[in-house]
């Protein structure tokens, strides 16, 4: 390694370390703010080094568990159900269009791809769901529009099936008299764990982070998941006042806002260290095949 390379290596570490700190700082500010004493936050503003810490904000959330716990469970339930259903549907479709010799395979392929090229846009989609399927103010609204399946994940799985699935195993199972469904669930699915895990993370993240469906289709705020509760607090300054505070004192709104946002990212922060490789794989897989 010559001198120029060594110097460049040092520079790389300095730049990346600085960049990492800059990108993580907002998360720290958010978390520290949520543990700040309300009066301190109001007087001195949000700070990385508050004068006084407090867990009042979290106490408020727990005293209103009926509201916030429910929102959290709605989001968790929709995410779980959406991932199970969406990934299964995508894998089935991907398997079908990756079968060589299937009559109409090209048409099916185009049917999927075309959804990436052209779409009806918000107004037509909204009116279709509302006036044709009457989805407004039902939990279907959180599960179905836009999130369940998309061409991108199907293509991701299809590419995997076409390149990494050992056809001999499928043939062997077929000779043993297994039905195509049994082959799919007992042979193909277990063999495609890496891609299924990656896609499940992508889909799960999309469900967990979604607030648009709730915003478009749910007027009833009691059906809102955690992201929509965050959105409600943004659009309605008095949102937090409507719930009683157990202590009888004023609601610590300045810090509670931040505490609820922390609750909104908590699951991601918790699983991220363990699934980091899959996240990176999901990101790069998407990038290589636009």
């Amino acid at each position: 390694m010559n001198r120029s390379s060594k110097r460049f290596l040092k520079l790389s570490h300095i730049v990346l370390l600085l960049l990492s700190c800059l990108l993580i700082a907002p998360f720290l500010l958010l978390i520290i703010s949520s543990f700040t004493d309300e009066t301190t936050a109001v007087q001195n503003g949000y700070s990385f080094f508050p004068q006084k810490f407090s867990v009042d904000a979290y106490r408020y959330i727990f005293s209103n568990f009926r509201i916030f716990g429910k929102a959290f469970l709605i989001t968790a339930g929709v995410t779980l159900f959406g991932v199970l259903l969406g990934v299964t549907m995508a894998a089935l479709m991907a398997y079908a269009i990756s079968r060589p010799g299937l009559p109409g395979r090209k048409i099916l392929n185009f049917y999927v791809i075309f959804t990436m090229l052209f779409n009806g846009g918000l107004v037509a989609t909204y009116l279709t769901y509302v006036s044709v399927f009457h989805i407004k103010n039902t939990y279907f609204a959180l599960l179905i529009p836009n999130l369940l399946c998309n061409a991108f994940t199907i293509m991701l799985i299809k590419n995997y099936y076409q390149t990494s699935l050992p056809t001999e195993l499928i043939e062997a199972a077929r000779i043993d008299g297994a039905s195509e469904w049994a082959i799919f669930f007992k042979v193909v699915m277990p063999l495609s764990k890496p891609i299924i895990a990656t896609v499940a993370l992508i889909v799960g993240l999309a469900y967990w982070n979604d607030w648009q469906n709730g915003l478009y289709y749910l007027d009833d705020t009691s059906m809102h998941g955690i992201q929509n509760v965050l959105n409600d607090m943004n659009s309605n300054a008095k949102y937090l006042m409507q719930f009683a505070h157990s202590g009888g004192t004023a609601v610590p709104t300045t810090t509670v806002r931040m505490a609820i946002a922390v609750v909104g990212i908590l699951p991601i922060l918790c699983i991220y260290p363990f699934f980091q490789d899959y996240f990176v794989k999901g990101v790069t897989a998407g990038a290589v095949k636009g």
């Binding site: 990346l16 370390l17 960049l19 990492s20 990108l23 993580i24 907002p26 998360f27 500010l29 958010l30 703010s33 949000y46 993240l205 967990w208 982070n209 979604d210 607030w211 992201q227 965050l230 959105n231 943004n234 806002r257 931040m258 946002a261 909104g264 990212i265 991601i268 991220y272 260290p273 980091q276 996240f279 990176v280 990101v283």
Partner: peptide
């Protein structure tokens, strides 16, 4: 480094609006 720089990509825009608001 990769974990740190990818983290912001994984959170929802609603939460981003709270982060921005804190600043």
């Amino acid at each position: 480094y990769m974990s740190a720089i990818l983290l912001p990509y994984l959170i929802s825009m609603v939460v981003v609006s709270y982060l921005a608001y804190a600043y």
